[in-house]
Design a protein around this nucleic acid. Structure first.
Lengths: 152, 152
DNA sequence: AATAAAGTCTATTACAATACTAGACTTTCA
DNA sequence: TGAAAGTCTAGTATTGTAATAGACTTTATT
């Protein structure tokens, strides 16, 4: 049940890109090195991650001087589940309950396998959260916590 | 978010050990090779897994001819969460929300980190299921499904 | 046109984890 | 006493993770 560094960095980067877009509805462009510096991540590693996200259609980019990355859709329309699946693969803890990468596990009878039934509940619980939490939800929540703790 | 083979086999074995105990309340003893055969698992690999579970106090064993393994407590008192943690470690998707193996992640401010807040929800959702599902719950559910599908 | 700043793409690498396998040892029962 | 069972430690092949490296392309500025 682990989120990889790849997944963690990618999610953090996407949240960072969504953050300024909170107020101005125009998509905010940021450069790899700035995100890397802010999140304390290897820029070279982050580069690969953002590229993957771009190839998955979640980011757009601009090359050359003054270029950078920006969200391909509004922060409300991008969920953590979408990002997670691009970077870390299926959400399901075991293949036999995966929606995006189903494979039979070794149990004698899948239909009545108690482990499978429970792991299916787990999968759904995780997917419920990740697929119903948008980048916008995350940045809103961050701002709410900051406000509660006194400006900052 | 993956259950390892180690975790999968261990959980399946524990469920197998709980299964016959469903009717007779006396703990049922089973041998490694029988569990391995029934669940189609390498007996040698399963051996290590059961040993780990034994050392964690969840199984008892009897050596020598006619020996085997049996649950150390009743199937009602053993949860999937306990088993999972022995075999696969913390349930949390990221260290900074782990109850059993907390470590700070790299984010600038943990208290207001949106990723952390969401991953904490995920952790709790998983733990809620795994810690509130006992081996007895699993075997009961299996029987219910079997009945629904017509005896078997 | 030249240069520098930015993203693009592919390959390689170091390390750790996973999923086993092997084999010697100990305990127990018949 | 011998076979059947669990115990314990070590080793190994494969894969996954987390990077690192470097050459290439595009674009803005001077």
């Amino acid at each position: 049940m682990r989120l990889s560094k790849r997944g963690e960095y990618g999610l953090r980067a996407m949240i960072a890109l969504a953050e300024p877009a909170e107020k101005s509805s125009a998509p905010q462009m940021m450069q790899i090195k700035d995100i890397a510096a802010r999140e304390q991540i290897s820029a070279k590693f982050l580069e690969q991650i953002l590229l993957a996200l771009k190839n998955a259609g979640m980011l757009h980019s601009k090359m050359g001087v003054g270029g950078g990355y920006y969200l391909a859709r509004s922060a409300k329309e991008i969920t953590l589940g979408q990002i997670f699946r691009v970077l870390d693969g299926p959400v399901a803890p075991i293949k036999c309950v995966s929606h995006m990468a189903y494979e039979p596990c070794g149990c004698p009878d899948e239909e009545t396998c108690g482990l499978r039934l429970t792991m299916n509940d787990v999968r759904n619980a995780i997917a419920d959260i990740l697929d119903n939490t948008s980048l916008s939800d995350v940045t809103k929540r961050q701002h709410a916590v900051r406000k509660k703790l006194g400006i900052k």
